[in-house]
Write a protein that binds this DNA or RNA. Structure first.
Lengths: 107, 107
DNA sequence: CAAACGCATGAATGATTGCTCATTTGTTCA
DNA sequence: TGAACAAATGAGCAATCATTCATGCGTTTG
């Protein structure tokens, strides 16, 4: 049986858009991709991902606000990790889509 | 066995971000949500979703460019439909996440 | 305590975005 | 053919965003 498709009200649409918006930036995508491997502290993330520590920190705050990542302090370091599996799954699915699209048009 | 987690290169991150960006707007989310039910022409979409025909048309163009929807002309009408299952799946997954999040904090 | 380290934050700025308005293109029908 | 309808498009504008720079806060260590 085909799943029931709910009609989405305006609030839900806004929340949903906000979720996707959190994933709608290359820097944040890369941050999350790093965190797929396990928790990581800010300056490591900055090294791997590229932009300044400040930029990374700003983006992490956004992800934190959206409850997509958790922060844990240990000494002078703050370790970030993914908040739940949904994020990883969404990223994974998006990745599959992107790879298919770009494979079939040979880009 | 746990899936292998690829390290994401910069281009892939950008493509992935672009995909999520296409879903990162309430209007576009609602458009896609409408199309989950089946194909639909522009002025109907405009009626259901809210903003002007022009605004809807602009957003549909974006979705078209991203190959997330297809357009089919029939007389004066242009019928839009979802390009593939990935979109529907992504939306569905996002929806589940949003509903869980907002349920557990009682919003 | 003071210096150094790790991170967060506020202000400022250039870039991007989503809308409206006006116009254009494509189609049907009187 | 010309009026009316459906949709697309371009210009313009206010709002949002991602970054940098400067600085502040918390922690460790000499």
């Amino acid at each position: 049986m085909v799943q029931t498709i709910p009609t989405i009200d305006e609030t839900t649409a806004t929340n949903l858009a906000a979720l996707f918006k959190a994933l709608a930036d290359p820097t944040r995508v890369r941050l999350i991709a790093c965190l797929l491997h396990g928790e990581c502290c800010v300056h490591e993330l900055a090294e791997i991902v590229g932009p300044s520590q400040s930029a990374v920190s700003h983006q992490l705050r956004l992800l934190r606000t959206m409850r997509l990542v958790n922060a844990r302090r240990e000494g002078r370091h703050v370790y970030y990790s993914l908040a739940d599996d949904h994020v990883a799954t969404l990223l994974q699915m998006g990745l599959e889509h992107v790879q298919e699209i770009h494979a079939e048009q040979g880009e």
